[in-house]
Design a protein around this nucleic acid. Structure first.
Lengths: 193, 193
DNA sequence: CAGTAATTTCTAGCGTCGCTAGGATTGCTA
DNA sequence: TAGCAATCCTAGCGACGCTAGAAATTACTG
């Protein structure tokens, strides 16, 4: 009985270690370096063990992405209570992407298996989106909050991805972010209090 | 003599066919389906021939991306003369991405070998960016046109990529685009003094 | 026209990838 | 302690990007 429990606990622990190893490796050398063989070596098991936990490499990346969603939601949720929520959320967003580039890619670029704007979307992801929605709500004007939040989020995502791909002129990240926040309504001194 | 010229012309033609085959295959089945073996079969030559034209698969994708830049620049340049250049450029941009999804990915997501915001950036790419800059110039206000253009471009890019990855609620593409254009154009009063 | 040199192209293969089948090993039950 | 499950590993499959060296083709010479 208790042995059965111990086995299940050990299995769960090993599953955690797989995802952690994938994240470490991805953050250190990029997702291309995350191979099933290297993952297996890192957790000190053989390759097929991975497939007793996940359906494949894609599922491991998706699991890492879900973890990332939760962490991103945490940061955004905290920022949403800032006096200037739009600017705070924007900064928290790019800071997260900057600190966890591989994880960010796993969430938004790779991990096509991950359901997003559907009923089966991970709760963590909905929380992250809710934080953005809360931040844009005060400046919604006549626009729907949900659609506006998606638009603002997409703009942030574009800045992050193009910047990382060296598609934008270096050294102007803060300026671009300030422009975006200003155009969407916050940051300009005015509606406060 | 002329034979030498003919050989060079044939070689150039074959190179064009390689890139065309890559684009066709990518647009039909995605870039993952573009393998060197399938490319070789499509142009009816053996695999190593590809490497006498390009340094590798990445270079072939980069060549396709440069072609795509030129076509994108053409569409954006035409839209920049519209009475409402901001909206016209935005629509032309998403229309291009919608009509050539694989090519769009080659330009902006893959093709990391492609130099962008540097001196060696392809002229076609600079033209495309110039069209965006021209479109945002009238609504620049106190912002620098170049930085503003990058920000607007990034926002468009974010909408395109998140939408394609099913990260956004379906059926609201036009609304999101309208919001973006409004916030960047009408939302801010005229040129600052 | 024949023979050789140079170029082009192909066959075959290397190492690695994600993934899986089937046998060996372990631990539990009786 | 014998039998049975669950667990795990060795070995291998097909496909990938890419490359070395042989074969075939072309071009140039005597």
């Amino acid at each position: 009985m208790t042995q059965q429990l111990r086995r299940e606990r050990d299995r769960a622990e090993r599953e955690r270690r797989i995802v952690a190893a994938a994240r470490e490796l991805a953050e250190a050398e990029g997702w291309d370096a995350v191979t099933t063989r290297r993952l297996a070596a890192k957790i000190e098991y053989s390759q097929p063990v991975l497939y007793s936990h996940f359906s494949g490499k894609g599922a491991i990346m998706a699991a890492a992405a879900v973890e990332g969603c939760a962490e991103l939601a945490e940061r955004l949720g905290a920022a949403a209570f800032d006096p200037s929520p739009l600017a705070a959320v924007a900064e928290a967003y790019v800071a997260f992407a900057d600190a966890n580039p591989a994880l960010y890619d796993a969430i938004f670029t790779l991990a096509t298996e991950l359901p997003f704007a559907t009923a089966e979307a991970p709760p963590a992801l909905k929380n992250a989106f809710g934080a953005i929605a809360a931040a844009v709500a005060p400046v919604a004007g006549g626009d729907g909050v949900g659609i506006l939040a998606e638009t603002f989020w997409a703009a942030l995502h574009g800045l992050v991805t193009l910047d990382r791909g060296r598609r934008l002129s270096p050294g102007y990240r803060a300026e671009r972010l300030a422009i975006l926040v200003a155009r969407f309504g916050d940051g300009v001194p005015g509606p406060a209090d």
